[in-house]
């Protein structure tokens, strides 16, 4: 467990995740109050990574439920192991078992596949349950999740009611593709992660791409930070900064110049209109 906000900071840093004080406070509170932590913010600022780092810091496993359109409660809870069932049917076929026997057999616990949500509830010790990109799921799924998280139990016809043996640390993330319900938000500790400050981004690049020399790293971060001041359709995120840094290292760059930037800009920017905008005023954007 975490002892204090400072302790959160320290332990996450050990996981190579650099966190600011505000975010550390939210993590600390969520864990202590046993409330879900809802993290919002643009793509690539470290939402998913934070959940992983928390699991690492607490020395426990991370169970991840990736959301998508059409995800429903049964897929989040359990499935029958269809392939294994088929195999059993085939092999039983060769014996003298009746169909009734086979059927009773293949719908038993042995063929049962617990999906993330159920796994998290059934886990012996406290795990981290990451419900990633919740905004991509449908509203019906969201309300099901809200119910499951309000008393940490679910009822499944085949199994009865399953109650968490130890309450998991729950992290929900959203890219704001759709607005989450007020009811869900009310239950959560909220954290908005924005693009990082210059100092923090510099530190992140140093940790994640130590091969890059000091000057190069600084120039990279300066440039990315100045891009974020422009009005862009999709500003570069930390993940893009890291990709760019790795590419430049591969290219053997010691520093950046106009030509190099223009040749690699598509790593930072995904939209043609953004690239055009930057090309037009590239000289003003480059650090001295």
């Amino acid at each position: 467990m975490f002892e204090s906000i400072e302790d959160v900071k320290k332990k996450l840093t050990k996981q190579n995740y650099l966190i600011n004080y505000r975010a550390a406070t939210a993590v600390f509170l969520a864990v202590k109050l046993q409330k879900p932590l809802l993290i919002e913010g643009p793509a690539g600022v470290g939402k998913t990574e934070l959940a992983k780092a928390v699991a690492g810091a607490l020395d426990t496993s991370l169970i991840r439920l990736q959301c998508y359109e059409g995800l429903d409660e049964s897929k989040a809870l359990f499935e029958w192991n269809y392939q294994k069932q088929l195999l059993r049917i085939q092999s039983n076929h060769l014996t003298d078992k009746t169909w009734e026997e086979t059927r009773a057999n293949i719908f038993s616990e042995e063929f049962f596949l617990a999906r993330p949500l159920l796994q998290a509830l059934k886990a012996e010790n406290t795990v981290v349950l990451l419900v990633d990109e919740l905004d991509k799921s449908d509203e019906e799924f969201e309300s099901f999740l809200l119910e499951a998280l309000s008393d940490y139990q679910v009822s499944i016809p085949e199994l009865g009611t399953v109650k968490a043996s130890s309450i998991p640390v729950v992290v929900l993330t959203s890219n704001n593709y759709r607005e989450l319900s007020d009811a869900l938000k009310r239950r959560c500790i909220h954290l908005y992660i924005d693009y990082p400050s210059f100092e923090r981004e510099l530190a992140i690049v140093r940790i994640k791409v130590p091969e890059a020399n000091k000057v190069l790293t600084e120039k990279i971060v300066q440039f990315v930070q100045s891009l974020r001041k422009m009005v862009l359709k999709k500003p570069p995120s930390i993940s893009e900064t890291l990709d760019w840094a790795r590419t430049l290292v591969l290219l053997g760059a010691q520093s950046i110049n106009e030509e190099l930037v223009l040749n690699t800009i598509n790593i930072l920017l995904k939209y043609q209109q953004d690239i055009k905008k930057v090309e037009e005023r590239i000289s003003g954007l480059l650090p001295e």
Binding site: L29, D182, R186, H190
Partner: peptide, 20 residues
């Protein structure tokens, strides 16, 4: 659970009261 310096105070209140 948290300290009482102004910054922590602010962060604690905002994390629990503001969801948007």
């Amino acid at each position: 659970l948290t300290g009482m310096d102004k910054k922590t105070f602010f962060d604690t209140l905002s994390a629990t009261l503001i969801k948007d």
